[in-house]
Simulated assay, not measured.
Amino acid sequence: MNNSKPHIIVEGSVEFKLGELDGNQIIYDFDKMLIYLNAKGRLLFGAKFKTFEEDREILFKLCNYFIKDEANCKRLDIDINKGILLSGPVGCGKTSLLKLLRYIVPHQKPYKMIPARNIVFGFNHIGYKTIEDYGDDHFFCFDDLGVEPIGRHYGKDCNVMGEILLSRHDLFVEEKIKTHATTNLNARELEERYGQRVRSRMRELFNLIAFDNASKDKRT
Score class of each variant (00 low, 15 high):
Phe211Arg: 06
Lys48Glu: 15
Ile104Lys: 02
Gly195Met: 04
Asp29Tyr: 12
Glu11Phe: 00
Ser200Ala: 01
Asp157Val: 08
Arg117Met: 09
Asp69Lys: 07
Arg168Pro: 04
Leu37Arg: 08
Glu175Thr: 11
Lys109Thr: 15
Gly91Lys: 12
Ser215Thr: 01
Asn213Phe: 03
Lys178Asn: 07
Ile8Pro: 02
Lys74Asp: 14
Gly83Ala: 12
Arg201Gly: 00
Lys129Cys: 02
Lys94Gly: 05
Lys112Ile: 06
Glu15Ser: 15
Asp77Lys: 15
His169Cys: 07
Ala214Pro: 00
Asn3Phe: 15
Leu37Tyr: 14
Lys99Ile: 10
Arg56Ala: 06
Thr51Ser: 10
Ser87Tyr: 00
Ser87Asn: 00
Gly122Ile: 09
Cys73Glu: 04
Val198Lys: 13
Lys99Cys: 11
Gly122Lys: 13
Asp170Pro: 10
Arg197Pro: 07
Asp29Lys: 11
Gly155Tyr: 03
Lys82Pro: 04
Met202Gly: 09
Tyr154Leu: 11
Gly41Ser: 11
Val173Ser: 07
Gly146Cys: 03
Asn118Glu: 05
Phe172Asn: 07
Gly88Leu: 05
Gly91Glu: 11
His153Ser: 12
Ser167Arg: 13
Asn72Asp: 14
Tyr36Ile: 02
Arg219Phe: 12
Gly91Phe: 01
Glu163Asn: 08
Leu44Pro: 09
Lys109Tyr: 14
Ile80Gln: 06
Ile67Tyr: 07
Gly162Ala: 03
Ile209Asp: 05
Asn24Phe: 12
Ser200Asn: 03
Ile104Gln: 05
Glu174Phe: 12
Glu174Pro: 09
Leu208Gly: 05
His107Ala: 01
Tyr111Ile: 09
Gly162Ser: 03
Ala187Ile: 01
Thr130Asp: 00
Gly127Phe: 05
Leu98His: 06
Val173Leu: 09
Ile119Asp: 08
Val198Met: 05
Ile164Gln: 10
